[in-house]
Design a protein around this nucleic acid. Structure first.
Lengths: 170, 170
DNA sequence: GTCCCTATACTCGGATAGCAAGTGTCCGAGTATAGGCGG
DNA sequence: CCGCCTATACTCGGACACTTGCTATCCGAGTATAGGGAC
């Protein structure tokens, strides 16, 4: 059981986008260099978020990615489902219906208790993911890193985007 | 994010072992044929459970696997951790410390908020898994399948093990 | 000076190789049993 | 008849190929911009 690296990358990217002005698009290449990750692969992950209507892609010059919805309306669950797919981690193949001691399929009217218990726990996991939004991550970002880091990041991003004014109000 | 098939298989096997008399060992080959899964691969999964002290392996003739602890003391979490490893699904690679805008590592005293949120949800998942024991699955097994299925399974298993008396009291 | 047109440069998007982990299988080491032999 | 010994057959355990899905990368389609030219 392992989540792909793209989940971590895109969550950091969404945090950056959530801290930006809503109308400013950031190219995937800038996001990749900002986090020190491969540019081409991050682009592929951002496409998945674009398909899920989490971020919006702006083509052409001065284009890039920006949040498609307010950061308060995007949860961690949305991002994870967009990248890992809607399928559940535990898949019931109904092996109780196989083997020599199986009876007619009509006898298995109740769902498999093992699958039910596994899916119940998985639902708790999803509720836990849905409890945190991108906006929460942005708010926490101010306290977890010092002002030095924040200012340095803002300056670097503004420089890359060719924007004179700092994108985030202090 | 996907759990291996071995999780489903071994949980069904543990349910069978939990319904058996505590001193009767069932070979992996019988468990495999009972569930209609590859014998050699199931044996590999059972080895992991043996290493985790969930089941006990009895070598030699008339040997096999039996529960190493009471079924009430084995949770779904124990089985999942034994097979998937103790590592967490989300791995924080601290990419916030990479890239051009990074500052000295000593500035990152607080843990990454993204990783904290992900691990919080994962902890809820583990609590959900720990809430169900093998004994619960055995108890639920009586109601979810009819008496026909249960009796047929008992007869088949007794036949395979060479035991005259039905292993489970009605 | 203003408007329009064209060429440009930059963006995303999907199609394409490489690799690691999970999947599936095999054969060897070890042991409790069953039968035979001796007392 | 009872106890001991040996050969056996069966078990688990770890080492060896194969396949699927994730990782990483590239090039092509599309568009807003910027500059130049005409009016």
């Amino acid at each position: 059981m392992r989540l792909g690296d793209g989940v971590e990358w895109t969550l950091h990217c969404c945090t950056v986008l959530g801290a930006m002005p809503p109308d400013l698009a950031v190219p995937a290449s800038v996001l990749a260099e900002f986090h020190g990750v491969p540019s081409a692969y991050l682009a592929k992950q951002m496409q998945a978020l674009s398909r899920a209507n989490i971020v919006e892609s702006i083509p052409g010059r001065k284009g890039g990615y920006k949040m498609a919805r307010p950061a308060t309306d995007v949860t961690l669950l949305d991002v994870v489902l967009a990248l890992e797919g809607p399928g559940r981690a535990f898949r019931c193949t109904e092996i109780r219906q196989q083997g020599p001691s199986a009876v007619s399929p009509s006898s298995y009217v109740k769902p498999c208790g093992i699958a039910a218990a596994m899916w119940r726990a998985e639902e708790m996991y999803r509720e836990g993911l849905a409890a945190t939004t991108i906006a929460d991550l942005v708010a926490e970002l101010d306290v977890e890193v010092g002002a030095e880091q924040t200012e340095k990041a803002i300056i670097w991003l503004a420089e890359q985007l060719g924007v004179a004014e700092p994108p985030k109000a202090p």
